[in-house]
Every structure is written in C-alpha cells, then in structure tokens.
Design a protein around this nucleic acid. Sequence first.
DNA 1: AATGAATGAGACTTCATTCAT
DNA 2: GATGAATGAAGTCTCATTCAT
Lengths: 208, 208, 208, 208
Amino acid sequence: MVPKNDLRPRKVPTQPRAIATVDALVEATARILVDDGLHGVSTNRIAEVAGVSVGSLYQYFPSKEALVMAVVERHANNVVTLLSDAFAQALQEPLPVAIDQLVSAIVDVHDQQPELQHAIVSQVMTLGVHHTAPMHARAVDVVHAFLITRQEDLLVDDCRSAAWMLVTTVMATLHGRHMGVAPDLGTTSLKVQLTAMIQRYLLPPSSA
Amino acid sequence: MVPKNDLRPRKVPTQPRAIATVDALVEATARILVDDGLHGVSTNRIAEVAGVSVGSLYQYFPSKEALVMAVVERHANNVVTLLSDAFAQALQEPLPVAIDQLVSAIVDVHDQQPELQHAIVSQVMTLGVHHTAPMHARAVDVVHAFLITRQEDLLVDDCRSAAWMLVTTVMATLHGRHMGVAPDLGTTSLKVQLTAMIQRYLLPPSSA
Amino acid sequence: MVPKNDLRPRKVPTQPRAIATVDALVEATARILVDDGLHGVSTNRIAEVAGVSVGSLYQYFPSKEALVMAVVERHANNVVTLLSDAFAQALQEPLPVAIDQLVSAIVDVHDQQPELQHAIVSQVMTLGVHHTAPMHARAVDVVHAFLITRQEDLLVDDCRSAAWMLVTTVMATLHGRHMGVAPDLGTTSLKVQLTAMIQRYLLPPSSA
Amino acid sequence: MVPKNDLRPRKVPTQPRAIATVDALVEATARILVDDGLHGVSTNRIAEVAGVSVGSLYQYFPSKEALVMAVVERHANNVVTLLSDAFAQALQEPLPVAIDQLVSAIVDVHDQQPELQHAIVSQVMTLGVHHTAPMHARAVDVVHAFLITRQEDLLVDDCRSAAWMLVTTVMATLHGRHMGVAPDLGTTSLKVQLTAMIQRYLLPPSSA
DNA sequence: AATGAATGAGACTTCATTCAT
DNA sequence: GATGAATGAAGTCTCATTCAT
C-alpha cells in the first residue's frame, strides 16, 4: 500500500498554552472521527473545531494522518491503563474465574467510549494496517505470556496460535457490536457468550 | 455517518460491448483497490485502467462509491456461490463433521483472492458500515437457520446470539490473517483452531 | 540545489480547443513573468489570466515551473528560428563582415521582445540553472563549429574557450541593456561596441 | 516589477550580544542561500539556523528580503575592500600591465567564495534588479574614471560605453564559470582570455 | 531583548463530475 | 454511445509576520 511518511508529532509542547492547543487538536480529531468518520477529517476542519488556526496544527503534526494516529494512541493508552488492574488481579485467580473477570473487564473498558472505539476500528485501517498492527501484536504477546504460565491447565498445546485466536476473536466481537448488525448482543449477553466460548476453547470439560 | 446517496448502477448494459465496458470498470476498480487501497481509487484512474473514458464510467455508475460497491457485491456473490455446495452437503452430515467441512470450505474460499478480500475488509468500511452490514446480517441468518435445525444437539440455547458469535469470529479470524499480524496462522493451523473453538462452543463434550 | 522533478508537459493537446487552452496558458505565463516577475507567477493567477480553470492547467502541466519552462522553450525556439537565416548567410561572407552581420542579427533578435527576454534571464535562473544551461551549451557548440571552419584566419588558438567567451559576453551585454543600468547603450551603440570587441578579439589587427 | 518597501535593517545593534545575533542571522541567510537557493530561505529557517528566535530576527530586519540584501551588501563590501589595493597599484602601472593585474585580481577575488557569489547572482535578481543595479553602476563609475585618466592611450572614444562593456563582460564571464556550462574555463585560462579580450578592445595593436 | 506560539492568507494540487462535440 | 476537455470546490500545507509573555 502506501508507506506513510512519518506520523510522529513534530514537536512536543512544553508551554501550557501549547499543551492546550495540542490537546484541543487531538480532541477535535476524535470528535470528528466519531461524528463523520475519517471522511470528515480534514486539517481545516480539525483546526476549526479545535478553535485553532491551521498553522498551529501543522506546528505540531505533520499531517492529518498523524493526528488520527495520536487519537489512536491516546485511546490505546487509556485502554491499557484501565486493563492493567484487571490483569494483575486475574493472575491470582483460578483459571475459570480469571477468564470470567478478564472478559468482563475488557468488555467494560470497550464500553467506555464505544463510538470512538468503533470509529477507530472501522476507519483507521484505511490508513494502512501497519500502524495498528503493533498494538494487536502487543496484545497477543500479553495473552501469550499469560497462557504459558498456565499451560498445564489448558486444553491447547500451541499457546501462540491460541493467543492469536483469542485476541482476534475478542476484538472482533467487541467491535462487531457497534456495527449496527443484528441482533446486537447486549453487554451481559456478550460477556456470557464470550466467556463460554473462551472457557470451552481453553479448558478441559471437567474444569469449566 | 454519511447517508450515501444511491449506490446502485445507473443502467444495466445489454449490448455485449457495454457489458464489456462495465466489466472492465469493475475489474479496474478491484485492481486499484488491491494495489493502492481506497486512497488510490479515483474515477479518472478507474477509467484509465479500464481503458475507457470517464464519460462512459458515469453512464453506468452514479459515483465512485457505486463502483466500489459493485466490486464488493461481485465478490460477495462469488463467495456465496462457492459456499452453497458446501452448505448443501454439510446438512447431510453429523454435526462435528458438518462443522469441520464448513470451516474448511469457508477458509478455502477466502483464500481464493486474499488481497481483494483484505482490501475490501480494510478499506471499504470507511464508506460507512451501512453498506456491508446487510451481507453480515445475511450470513447470520443462514447460520441461524442451520443452528435451529440442530438445536437439540447443541450446547447453546440462544441460537441467534450463537450465530452472531460464529459469523463474527470466523470473519475476524479470516481477515486477521492478512493483516500481517504475528504469528500469521497458516491455512491448516487456522482450520484446526477454528474447528476446535467452534466445536467446543457448540457441542457438548461427549460428542466432539 | 533542487533537483526539480519533471518539467515536461503532461500531455500534448491535439484537439483544437485543447491547443488553444495550452497556448493561452503559456501566453499568460509569459505575460505575468514580464509584468510581475517570477514572484507574481502562481498557478491560480496563470489560469485566471489565461481565462481557464486551474484544473485545465494541471491537465497539461505538472507544475508552475513546467509552464515557465514552456515559456523559455518557446522563446528559445523563436530565437533559433530567427537566427538560422543570419547564420546561413554569414557563412558565405568574409570574417569581418560575418561578425558584423551576426552581431547585428543577434542584437536585433533580442530586441524583439526585450521584456520577455529580460524576464527570462533575470528570473528563471532561480529555478536552477540546470534547465537553461543546455541552451547555453548549444549556443557554444554552434559558435565553436563556426570558429573551427575559419581557424586559420583567427587570432585565437583555443576555439572552445573563445566560443564560450563570445557566447557569454554577447549574452551578458544583451541582457545587461535591460537592467536599467546606466548608461543603457542604445541599439546602434551596442552593435558598434560588440562588433569592435569581437573583431579585435578574434582577428589579427591587419584584417579588422 | 515590485517596488520593494524598505530593505534597510531596522536598527543597528550596539551591544555585543546583539551584534552577534545580527551576524548570525546574516551568516545563516548566506548559508541557506548557498545550500538551497532563494527558495530555501524563509524567516523561520534563518532564525533556526542562526540559533535565534524569529522574534529577534524581526527586531533587526523588517523582512526576509532585507536579510538577503544584507548578505549581498556584506559580500559587495568584501569585494570592494579586497579590490581597492589592486586598483591603487594598477594606477601606477603602464596600461597593459594594469589590465593584466586588475583582471587577475578580480578573478581571484571572485574565486574566494564562488558558491556565495553564484548564489547571489543567480538567485537575487528575482527580488528585482533595482537593488543590485546600484552596485553595477558604482563599478561602471570606477572603471569609467580609470579609463578617462588614460584616454589618450586608448583605442576607444566613448569611455562610458567602454566602461559599461567591460564591467558587464567581466561580471558575466566570472559568473558564467559557476553555471556548470561547458567547457568551464579554469582560473588561468579565464584570466588569459579575459586579458586578451580587454587588451585588444582597449589598446591599439602596437601597445598590446 | 528575546522568545516562540499563534495566525491566516494564499500557494499548490487533485478529483468527482458535467457537457459539448 | 462514447469521448475527453473543462470545471472549480475543497483539501493540503507553508511561511511571513505579530504579539503576549
């Protein structure tokens, strides 16, 4: 596809005024992404919504893609922060409980800002998967590490494949919910189904 | 998001030459989609690649989006056609075998034109989910119908939710493969994992 | 400096309407160049002056530089055409007369469109010498060829250096005239001085 | 062309720190001019290269053009300083020797900073000749004065025209050298040719 | 005096779409 | 029917300049 140039911010603001500007820009980008999709994102529009001039935008971001990336990263950091507790606790629990708790936590986290969540997933791929793939890979690594520590209790032998399957599946169902696709499982229902699927996939029948 | 105007073709070509033109246009659109992503798709470019004038393009399609939609539909039809046999046969088999065969068939079908497959999934969502959602719904319906006929053999009680879970999961894993995400399961491995997951999800332990 | 991308026209117009458009564009560019200098040349302005839309401009030229280049080339062709006669005739004459005639012809040619002439020389260099250098080189070659055929009558031994000196000198004086520099030699005066300088430079005292 | 507003520096720095700032700014401008041409010169860039803030730049210079002008003037002063000795001495010598010495001195001086020299000549004209013309005129005046004192030994009658011819010719050949135009005379060769041309132009055959 | 954040006009360029031939 | 020249709104991005701190 297109080997996108450089999506890193141009400079990190230190003065409070500048920080506010950058914040407003990222915020505005997220808003537009949610309201109108990637299609509605334009540098002029972002600047306008942020109440800032285009010039300021380009002082901190090299392109509109960089701003979208900033939104993605900010969101990813939120998610990671929110999940770290759940992971820490799950390590202490017996597997069936751990799975239950983790699924629940993940679903809850993604219900925080569902529209942004969905916008990111459905729109950002267009910019080239290359930029979101690392996050997916990171998630796979985390799950993989978790599975290995419990391998003796699991039905699966290939932990890596299993980790990949789990991450992919969980992600997909989370995002699928907001696609307006019937029958649009409710939060509870989704938790139940996901937990069931994962427990049966990972654990021997007796322990579930 | 954006309530897209009208994406249906403007008129159905009857003369052979006209049919060839329309074909070339859709083909060209697919090619560009695969090679450069949605970003590279422009009406002028399509016309050029198709070896046709822009004017002709607008004689048959009201907009660029309509052409992309035509690509999607053509692909969907291909998939449906290829799968119908597998489904017909699976109905005759005992459930575990049926699942095995269906998973295998679906994976194989999606391996037919993986780049186009991926391009469609990763790029087309931007145009608004509204247009791809119906296909997803259709798939859910088919699976739902299938599950209901076998309900007594299944572990699940809510067939609708289960159908949704299955379609979403299968789709996600199929598409995930082409995202360059580690560890990139091979065809066989994917079939094994998917079959395992689904069988355990649907069937009581004894029958698997 | 800057390795300018590609300054060649995008496509050659064949339809009369298109030819008129391209003509108007080049003409407009020349006008602006003369009136306001390179500084005043902008694609929007060119299109406006040409009575054409910007889109049309970009249909035929990849950039504003390409248009400036087209102006330069058109002018160069004019000059070459106008001079070829003079050169043909000068070959028949004894050297002092030939020099006289050639100098006279060149000065006259450059007096045709002095402002354009000046604009080109004073403005176009900024775009990188690379693009005008070939013309200079061509001129040097022509003069070199001429000198060699008469070498036995000349005072100079290094014809190549002499050719370079002559071209450079003649060019400079021609362009210097329009720079508003005192005392701004008149046409006749310039011819006299140039002829004198060149004849004494090239010919032994007796033959001048 | 464009009647440029006011290119004089805004205020003369007196404090050492301020002097250093101004110096750095002019120096930076020259560097950029040489490296990237006028095209690369922007106030922000100048400030950055000079290690100074844009604000400071505007404290001393009213515009970007003013800075470029400062570069030109600084260079011109250098040249004048370096040449004054040569001129003083040349006045004592017999004409052929004087010409020889002067040509040699001028060529040497221009070989000092050839890139800056070339950058100034090829780039600065775009800003409007008006600003460089005075320097040319001053040069013509100096040469004119010189010629008049020796008029009885010269072949020429119109000293003013001759002075103009000489300055224009010498300048052109000096600058032409750096234009990458074949055959790119070497320093010695250029001196020889220039001396020859000028001596024969100015002096009667017997005295050369 | 110096800083550097902010501004915004304006330059460049593309591309969906129309329409005369 | 087909063609492709023409259009111009809209988007991207830069850069000279100001001004509050």
